[in-house]
Amino acid sequence: MIELNANIIHEPKPKLVSKSDKDNLRRCIVSRRNMYKYEMIRFAIDPKGFVVPDIGCRLPGRGVWLEASLKAVKAAVDQNLFSYSARCSAKIPSNLAENIEKKLFERTSGWIGLAKRAGFLVTGHDKVRAKINLGDLAVLIQASDGSLLARKRLSACAKDFPCVEVFTSKELSNVTGRINVIHGALLKSDFVTPFLADVRRLSGFRSNQVPETEIRKLGRNV
Score class of each variant (00 low, 15 high):
His10Tyr: 10
Lys19Pro: 04
Thr176Gly: 07
Asp21Gln: 11
Leu96Ile: 08
Ala197Pro: 02
Thr108Tyr: 06
Tyr84His: 06
Gln79Thr: 11
Glu165Thr: 05
Ile179Arg: 13
Gly56Ser: 11
Ala90Leu: 02
Pro14Cys: 05
Ser85Lys: 10
Asp160Met: 12
Leu59Trp: 14
Lys116Asp: 08
Arg107Phe: 09
Leu154Glu: 01
Ala197Gln: 12
Lys170Asn: 03
Lys15Val: 13
Gly119Ile: 06
Ala143Ser: 15
Ser203Asn: 06
Asp126Leu: 06
Arg32Val: 05
Leu140Ala: 08
Arg33Thr: 08
Cys163Arg: 12
Leu137His: 03
Thr176Val: 14
Asp160Ser: 13
Arg178Trp: 13
Pro194Tyr: 09
Asp78Ser: 14
Arg178Phe: 06
Asn180Pro: 00
Gly219Thr: 02
Cys28Phe: 02
Glu98Leu: 15
His125Lys: 05
Asn221Pro: 00
Cys157Asn: 08
Asp78Gln: 12
Ser109Lys: 11
Arg178Leu: 13
Lys103Ile: 12
Ala97Asn: 00
Pro47Phe: 07
Asn34Lys: 03
Leu202Val: 05
Ala158Ile: 04
Ser173Val: 05
Ile92Pro: 04
Arg206Pro: 07
Met40Thr: 02
Ala130Gln: 11
Met1Thr: 10
Arg33Ala: 04
Glu171Trp: 03
Ala44Ser: 13
Cys157Trp: 10
Ile29Lys: 06
Pro194Phe: 03
Leu172Trp: 01
Thr176Ala: 09
Asn5Ile: 02
Ile92Arg: 02
Asn133Glu: 15
Gly135Leu: 02
Pro211Met: 00
Val222Met: 13
Arg178Gln: 12
Asn174Asp: 14
Arg42Tyr: 04
Asp23Met: 10
Ala115Leu: 03
Leu134Arg: 15
Gly56Tyr: 08
Leu70Ile: 09
Leu4Cys: 07
His183Glu: 08
Ala115Phe: 08
Ser83Asn: 08
Ile2Tyr: 04
Arg87Met: 14
Ile100Tyr: 06
Asp198Cys: 04
Asn180Ser: 07
Ser203Gly: 04
Leu172Ser: 01
Pro14Gln: 10
Ile92Ala: 08
Tyr38Asn: 11
Asp190Leu: 15
Pro60Val: 00
Val77Ser: 07
Asp190Arg: 15
Leu104Ser: 05
Thr123Trp: 05
Glu165Asn: 14
Gly61Arg: 04
Ala97Tyr: 04
Ala138Ser: 00
Gly124Ala: 11
Thr213Trp: 01
Lys13Ser: 15
Ser169Lys: 14
Phe161Asn: 09
Leu154Gly: 03
Val164Tyr: 03
Gly56Leu: 13
Ile29Ser: 07
